[in-house]
Every structure is written in structure tokens, then in C-alpha cells.
Nucleic acid binder design. Structure first.
Lengths: 211, 211
DNA sequence: CCGATATTTCAGAAAACACTGAAAGTACGG
DNA sequence: CCGTACTTTCAGTGTTTTCTGAAATATCGG
């Protein structure tokens, strides 16, 4: 690997972090390299910069494409594939959250949905299923929330983040004015009607549970 | 492993997911088992339930403690360690986010902070550093946001999540009324004063950048 | 269709990681 | 202190993941 020190540090760090982020070292490094590169790179540039095998780069790029983290483009009279990392860092965050949700949340949600349809055969199972119900309720809510929030434009999202916890003050005001109408909830699949999980949507006018 | 089918599915699933969540299979399984268990368990219970070695359980429990995901307690006249998973699923989410931030965000933030203090020696490095600055700005903002939001009580958080994207409507109203005062920003460490990154706090009265 | 240039696939080598059993460590009651 | 009951550590082994080089596949201009 022969890179300016600043870039080298960055690339190596992403390599190490890669592991924690669910990709391997090379994938992390390739991404870091593309991220700081002023122009798109071809696979062989990456080989030279990182000192890994050509095939490894090929697989890494494939994975980054699966994660939607790199863009592939071409130049006239050149049939090599040029790769670059999109400029918009917010887009990266969205992509990352999206992909992790898909890999880490969704499978568990569907496992839980199925488990909740089983008939418990013992007190132990009954208790376990109750715990699963609570977990499902939470994850389902977060999943809905994400599907909802992802559609907010970046500008507004930034505004919201800068607001931080002061959002609660706005909320208090909203409480008083009763700004918001209740949201239509998607039908809860596979959960018996008597489930205590969606008491919250039974009548209009927000959530009187809250003081 | 000899568990009721419902529990077994759950435990095995968490074992598989463990990998994606940054812990190994055994740790995932132990946590799942504790989560559905009606009473606290001792290490040997876990050995019996999961069919893994005693030492593996010991290491797994140690890791779960490092993650703050299990509680250790004792019973009178019994010096074995009893472990349980806290009931409050929201607490679990908070813990998880907290720990992942600590492991996945904070190290990168400090690497970036250091990189931004270096003097670029070439156009390439100059460009790379600019990219790092943008990334740092984003991560720093998210980090601040999290530090801020984590202190909101669960009830309010639930309320906010149920509101989802409708929060923007409340925001629009807030825009008009100019409800929120600007937040005091912590001093940006290591970044030169001329950094364009905190234009936002220079004068009171919210963010006139936004239309 | 051929030769040149690019990319992908894949079997096996190398490296990283998880798990075990044996041994060492700790804490308590007598 | 000694023995017992319990927990932790760690070197070695087994398993999974990553990486490589060689071969296969694809695409283009002529």
C-alpha cells in the first residue's frame, strides 16, 4: 500500500472498522479509498493503492454494489468500469441504515411474527411468547417509524437533528393544540385480535394515555 | 440443546443474528435464553439449555456484561451468580444504540478529528481532507443529536415515534411561531475557527438558512 | 472468428475467530 | 488453613471467513 499518510490512516481505519460494520477489511478499505478519491477509479487503481489481489477487489466492489454504496460509470473509448462513492454523505447514512435494517431487523421481525402464531404448550412457553410479543411490538414500531421517517428530505432531517431534545418542547405545544391526526396503522399480521399491542389506535384524537 | 420448540427457534435465531450484531453465536443464544426466561439463571442452567461448554458460557456472560445487557444478582445461601436480562425492552434498545455508538462511531470520530489537524501535503491530500471534514461534520452532528435525545424519557420517545414523519407538520407550525431557541454548541475540538461547519450557531433565532 | 483487454468465478491456502477442556483462581464455611 | 463449590483463564483445536492465483467468461475492434 503506497498512499499519502493522511489517506493511509483513513483507509486503514475503515478497514478495521469494516469488521464492526458487517463488511470485511478489504471492502472497508475500498470504500474509504473511493470516498476520498477526487476522481472515479478502476479496479487496478484500487489493487495498486491497497496492495490486495485483483480478485479480492472484484468481490469487494461487488459487495459494495450490493450495499448500494458505490456508483459504476464509464468513460468514452474505455471499457473499464469506473467506480466512485456518491458525494452526498447523507445518502450514505440512509443507505447504511436501510441495509442494516434489512439484514438485522427484518429477519427477526418475521421470525417473531411466526413465533407469535404458535400455540404455547407450557407455562414456560407461554411466558416466553409473552416476552416475544413485547419485543415484536417494539421492533414493529421502530420499523414503521423508519419507513415513515426515511421519506423526510435531508434538509428537514437536519433541522430536526439540530433541534434535538428540544423537539419535546414543540411537542408539548402540539399536545395543547392537538395538531396531529392519528395515523392509519397497517393491519397487524398473524397476531390475535385480542393482542394488547394496538390498543393505541382504537379511537381518534391522539393518545390520552399520555398525561 | 433441549428446549421447547418455541424457545428453541428464538434462541437459534438469535444465535445466527448474533454474528450480524457484532457478537458471536453463543453470546446471542445466551442473551435470547435469558430474555425469555421467567427467572434468573445460573451458568450451568445455560450450559444445559444450550449444550455448549461451561467456559464458553462464562466468556459469553462476561461479554454480555461488557455490553450492559445482563444483570447479575445473588440469592441468599447460594453463592452462584444468577443472570437475567432486564425486562424493559426500551432499555435494551438504548443500551444497544449506546454501545454500538461507542464501538462504531466514536473511534471514527476521533480518527477524523486527528486527521483534520494534519497539514495536507498535496492536492490529493487536500481533497481527501475536505471529504473527511464533511464526514466528520455529519458524524459529529449525529453524535450530538444522540447525546441529546437519549435523555428523553421513554414515554415521550414513544410518542415521538408514533408521530413519525408527521413531526414535520408540527415543525412547520413551529417555524411560523419560532418556538425554539438556539442550542449552545460545545466547542469544536481541533477544527480551525474558520471551519464552515458551525456557521449555524452564530446568531440567535433559529436557522434562517432554512426557508 | 480472432486477439486483446476486462471482469468474474472458484478451489484451496491463509488468517481470523469461536469453542473446549484442563488448570488456575476465588471465596466461603467449618 | 483446608475442602468445597463455583468462576475464570488460556493454550490448543476446530470452524468459519477472507483472500489469492489460475482458469473461465465476457466484450469489443478489426
Amino acid at each position: 500500500m503506497n498512499l499519502p499518510p493522511l489517506v493511509q490512516t483513513f483507509v486503514l481505519h475503515f478497514g478495521e472498522m469494516g469488521g464492526r460494520w458487517g463488511v470485511n477489511r478489504t471492502v472497508g478499505q475500498i470504500y474509504a479509498l473511493l470516498f476520498v478519491s477526487p476522481q472515479p477509479l478502476v479496479a487496478d487503481d484500487i489493487v495498486d493503492a491497497l496492495g490486495v489481489s485483483r480478485s479480492n477487489v472484484s468481490m469487494g466492489l461487488k459487495e459494495l454494489q450490493a450495499w448500494n454504496l458505490v456508483r459504476l460509470q464509464h468513460k468514452p473509448n474505455d471499457r473499464r468500469d469506473y467506480y466512485s462513492a456518491p458525494d452526498d454523505v447523507w445518502q450514505i447514512v440512509r443507505t447504511l441504515v436501510e441495509e442494516r435494517k434489512k439484514r438485522e431487523i427484518d429477519p427477526t421481525l418475521s421470525m417473531l411474527r411466526e413465533a407469535l402464531m404458535e400455540r404455547p404448550e407450557s407455562d414456560y412457553e407461554r411466558h416466553a411468547q409473552e416476552r416475544m410479543r413485547v419485543m415484536h411490538e417494539l421492533m414493529d414500531m421502530m420499523s414503521d417509524w423508519y419507513d415513515d421517517v426515511r421519506r423526510i428530505e435531508t434538509e428537514r432531517l437536519v433541522q430536526l437533528m439540530k433541534l434535538g431534545s428540544r423537539i419535546t418542547r414543540v411537542l408539548e405545544a402540539a399536545d395543547r393544540f392537538n395538531f396531529m391526526a392519528p395515523k392509519k396503522k397497517k393491519p397487524t399480521p398473524g397476531v390475535a385480535d385480542d393482542a394488547s399491542s394496538d390498543r393505541r389506535e382504537q379511537r381518534p384524537g391522539g393518545d390520552p394515555d399520555e398525561p
